[in-house]
Simulated assay, not measured.
Amino acid sequence: MTLTFTLDPVIDPVLREGILSLWADVSNAGGAVGFVPPVTADDIRPALIKQLAALADGGSRLLVGHDEAREVAATAFLTHNTHRLQLHWVWASTVMVHPRHQGKGYGRDLMAAAADAARSFEGIDAIRLGCRGGLGLERFYESCGYKEVGRVPDAIRVAPGDDRDDVTMLLPLY
Rank of each mutant, 00 (worst) to 15 (best):
R164D: 02
D109H: 10
Y146P: 00
P13H: 09
T79H: 12
S21G: 13
H98R: 10
L87H: 07
A69P: 02
D109P: 00
R61H: 14
W91H: 14
R16Q: 12
V90R: 02
T6R: 11
C131P: 00
P13T: 08
K104W: 03
S27W: 04
M111N: 06
R157W: 00
E138D: 14
F140E: 08
T40D: 03
D8F: 03
M96G: 08
V36M: 02
A159D: 13
V149Y: 06
A115M: 01
R139P: 03
R100K: 10
V95R: 09
E122A: 15
G133M: 06
S143W: 08
A56T: 12
A47P: 08
V26W: 01
E122G: 12
T40R: 03
G136R: 07
A54S: 12
R100E: 09
H88M: 01
A118Y: 09
Y146S: 04
S120L: 14
T94Q: 12
F5G: 04
F35G: 04
G136C: 06
I124W: 08
S120V: 10
D25I: 02
F5R: 01
D42Y: 09
G65Q: 07
A115V: 02
I11L: 11
A29M: 13
L137D: 01
I156H: 06
P38S: 02
E71I: 04
T6Q: 12
T2G: 05
D42L: 05
R100Y: 04
Y174W: 08
T82V: 15
A53C: 07
A74Y: 02
L48R: 05
V64G: 07
A159S: 15
H66G: 00
E68H: 12
L78Q: 06
Q102E: 12
D57K: 03
